[in-house]
Design a protein around this nucleic acid. Sequence first.
DNA 1: TTGAAAGCGCTAACAA
DNA 2: TTGTTAGCGCTTTCAA
Lengths: 361, 361
Amino acid sequence: MDVARLAGVSQKTVSRVFNDEPYVSAEVRRRVLEAAEELGYRLNNAARALASGRTRSIGVVTLGTALYGPASLIMGVERAVRDSGYTVRVVNTVEGDPAGVAGAVDSLLDQGVDGIVISEPIDDGHDGDLSGLVDVPILVLGAPPLPAPRALAAGVGAALMARAATEHLLDLGHATVHHLAGPQRWYAARDRLEGWRAALAAHGRTVPPVVEGDWSAASGYAAGHELASDGDMTAVFAANDDMAIGLIRALAEAGRRVPDDVSVVGFDDIPVAAYVNPPLTTMRQPFDAVAQEGLKRLVHSIENPQADPLPASDPPVDLVVRASTAPPPPRMTPGRARRTVSPPSGGRHSPPPNGGASTHN
Amino acid sequence: MDVARLAGVSQKTVSRVFNDEPYVSAEVRRRVLEAAEELGYRLNNAARALASGRTRSIGVVTLGTALYGPASLIMGVERAVRDSGYTVRVVNTVEGDPAGVAGAVDSLLDQGVDGIVISEPIDDGHDGDLSGLVDVPILVLGAPPLPAPRALAAGVGAALMARAATEHLLDLGHATVHHLAGPQRWYAARDRLEGWRAALAAHGRTVPPVVEGDWSAASGYAAGHELASDGDMTAVFAANDDMAIGLIRALAEAGRRVPDDVSVVGFDDIPVAAYVNPPLTTMRQPFDAVAQEGLKRLVHSIENPQADPLPASDPPVDLVVRASTAPPPPRMTPGRARRTVSPPSGGRHSPPPNGGASTHN
DNA sequence: TTGAAAGCGCTAACAA
DNA sequence: TTGTTAGCGCTTTCAA
């Protein structure tokens, strides 16, 4: 190694300097650094990985989507990985891909990652056979741990958040709350459904039939037309903001005003949520907190193979109340009020002055 | 190597099999594959990289944001990289990070990538000194090529798209078009501004003062309140959809209806664009096409170091016309019509029946 | 069509 | 506090 020669030391000493190992005199360190600088030297990662058996990289498996939730989580994960001194390797899966998550994990293993993060997975029946292959720690975000020997999970508190969202509507006085669910292949969608159901059960309310969307505003729009025909419906908890926005549009077309006739709660707090019409009440997801906490536990497992994994903690609940929720309208007659064809009523150009106002809870 | 022993061949032959090199008899190939299977063998990437000097990986530098545009581009890039047989290493930069792009590139170089993709960069004055360091091909998406020896650029057609968006409004009969620009540190924002200006110039229209936002709906909302005071304004081209949505909300609060009083065009075609109120006319960005084409050229440069780089091509223009644009309102009096305090007029519950209808151009 | 030898640039283990 | 000796598991080069 040229740097060693130029600095007049052994190769191993150079290695020590670059790894911040102890037992290097300040003088020698200086000489080595100087020589390295002069030669434009940089550590060769491949050689390092080969000799040490560790790549200092963490693989990330994500569903290839620009959906706000998954994308935000991934940003958080990348930052957290880098803060831990690791590098990131990414593999996207495509929904419907037969190889799916298992294939992605396999390719990451090929690349020799020291640990794996799986984000926002869907349960398509293709995973589950990872038990034998995976010998590195593996963290699953927003789902139960995979059946692998060194599995961890984080961010499974979605049910709690969904429950809080539902209870916000019940607290406003709504008799019950409808649910516009996400695709049930997604763990996150199932968690939210479950939290909603739990809230209704805890308060002894009737459980209306569930309408399922696919996360998109388009599916929320379709669901909205379906739900609008139910004259008794006064409140909807949508499993994400995009669907809530589509839903609100369909309700408006059907002559049901939000929040006057129907209250709507979303989930995620996407950036435009405060600016749509009306501004959306929604559950804010603590993406960064989940990513950071999960990563801390993953890195701990990587670096302390023997020790017990660190315990998980529940993410905080953070409801942002805006203008899409209100008390239910007064009931007009004991029977079903026929308001499906209610004509457009009055002017509507003075929405509540709350562009970005938000209240936490 | 155990596989070699078990198959009764040399190490080199195993290598040949796994690299699909010629000159291996079918019989030998079969034996090797069989032995590998039995031993659960997988190629060690670190060793491979060390011996060959190539990592078969491409580094991606992105601004750490969940904005729809950048996030979509990155998904496209990941897919394109993988389709080319490379793996992906990601580094996010943080806006305001002093190290910035140069630091990210450096860290990627440390990791030994064979090529680099930089996406959606902002011009913060920190890059530019990469010329000496970077010896691998480097592709910049949505910006001029970096001053590096093997630099490429792709997706710089934003000005053309902005021009088309502006001309759509002029074609509808608007006297001129205002522009709600993105932050001018972003190349993309500057391109769009330039395209807008070019369209106005080509048609001999007056160029109104530019209002600058930061891509967020919040900034669009603020800009909307500012623009609403100009009674002559009848059309706005917003540099992205989020800002357009905030803008429309502010206009509504100021009593200016969209599209009756003011037409608005956005940029990106984010998923909710068809479902906000009113559905947004917007320029759709061909993220996948840009990513794929750019990557093809990058890989070509990696694998043919001597050859001339492949030429770039302009992305297609794809305007999605929805309900936020219409001809300007008839002018009421020769002077300035005092309509800033115009009261809410009539019912509004029957938006045009165009939930997702779109027209290409 | 196959194999032997050498070494990529580092770190582990031990010695001095 | 520093150095020596071996490899890590592949690919390269050359020879058979």
